[in-house]
Design a protein around this nucleic acid. Structure first.
Length: 254
DNA sequence: ATGCCTCAGCTCCTGAGA
C-alpha cells in the first residue's frame, strides 16, 4: 500500500501534472494541499476518469485540501473539530482501514506576527484534537505541508535560517509535541540522501542548487510504525515545466 | 535589498507564499 502527500500550489495549474504523476505512481491515497479553488471547481470527473475517487475541502484563492483515493474515502471530516478556523486546511477520512489526515499547516509568515500567533494556536488545536483521535483511531497517518523543519538537517542553510520562520523553537516545540503523542517521522526511519528537501524557492534557481527545506512530512502512529517499509521524496515533478514549489512525499506500507 | 518567482483576483498591481 502506498500513501502520498503533495502541495500542488494551485490544482487548476497543476492538474495535468497530478494526473501524470498518478499514472506513474498509482498510490492508494494522495493528499493534496493548496488547491486554491472552491469546491464547485474541483475536478472530480478528471480523477474519476483516471480511476480515483476524491473528496475535497476548498476555498477561494488560498488553502484548500483534498484526498484522492482508489477506494472511496469514508467518514470525511473537514478541519479540526474543536478548533474554530475560517480557512480550509485539514481533511480526514478512513481509507483502506487507515485514518488518513491531510493537512496544510499555516505558514506563519514571520515570528511575532499575527499569522505566527495563529500558526501556534492552530498547532495547539491540532495537537489537542489528535490526542483524542489517536484513542479512537490507532492507525493514523498525518501528512501534508507542515511548514516546519524538524532540525538543521532539514534546512539548506541552518545558520542563515536560525530563528526564522519554519525554523523557530516555538514551531519545532509543537512539531515535537505531535511526535510525543505517539507519531513518528517516516522519513527518518530510513537512510535518506544527504540534503533531502521537499520544497525549494522558485527564485534564484534554488532547486538546481538544492537550496531547500524539508517541510512536507508523513507521520505515522505507533500502531502503524512496524508496517512502514519505505518513505521517499519524489523530486521528479519539481523538474517539470511550471512545477509546484513542493515535491511529493511517498510512504509505503506492508 | 523587503527583491529575486509564481499564483489568484474586484487582474496591468497587490498580497501571499516559504
Amino acid at each position: 500500500m502506498k500513501i502520498a502527500t503533495w502541495n500542488v500550489n494551485s490544482l487548476t495549474v497543476r492538474l495535468p501534472q497530478v494526473l501524470d504523476w498518478l499514472v506513474a505512481n498509482p498510490v492508494d491515497v494522495l493528499a493534496l494541499q493548496e488547491l486554491k479553488m472552491t469546491d464547485d471547481k474541483f475536478p472530480h470527473a478528471a480523477f474519476q476518469a483516471a480511476g480515483f475517487e476524491s473528496v475535497c475541502f476548498g476555498q477561494k484563492t488560498y488553502n484548500g485540501v483534498a484526498l484522492i483515493s482508489k477506494v472511496q474515502a469514508q467518514n470525511v471530516v473537514r478541519n479540526i473539530p474543536g478548533f474554530d478556523d475560517d480557512l480550509a486546511r485539514v481533511i480526514s477520512a478512513d481509507v483502506a482501514g487507515i485514518r488518513v489526515v491531510g493537512a496544510y499547516f499555516p505558514n506563519g509568515q514571520e515570528p511575532g506576527s499575527d499569522k505566527f500567533e495563529y500558526k501556534l494556536a492552530w498547532l495547539k488545536g491540532l495537537r489537542t484534537w489528535l490526542r483524542s483521535e489517536l484513542l479512537v483511531h490507532p492507525d493514523i497517518v498525518l501528512m501534508g505541508d507542515y511548514n516546519i523543519t524538524f532540525d538543521d538537517a532539514d534546512v539548506w542553510d541552518p545558520e542563515g535560517m536560525r530563528g526564522q520562520i519554519h525554523c523557530t523553537d516555538e514551531e519545532r516545540y509543537e512539531l515535537n509535541a505531535l511526535v510525543t503523542l505517539g507519531l513518528t517521522d517516516a522519513h527518518r526511519l530510513f537512510a535518506q540522501p544527504a540534503k533531502s528537501y521537499s520544497w525549494w524557492d522558485y527564485r534564484d534557481m534554488a532547486f538546481r542548487r538544492n537550496r531547500g527545506l524539508r517541510i512536507d512530512h508523513i507521520l505515522v502512529s505507533d500502531a502503524l510504525k512496524s508496517r512502514v517499509s519505505a518513505c521517499w521524496i519524489d523530486k521528479t515533478p519539481r523538474k517539470n515545466e511550471r512545477p509546484s514549489d513542493h515535491a511529493p512525499v511517498v510512504l509505503e506500507l506492508v
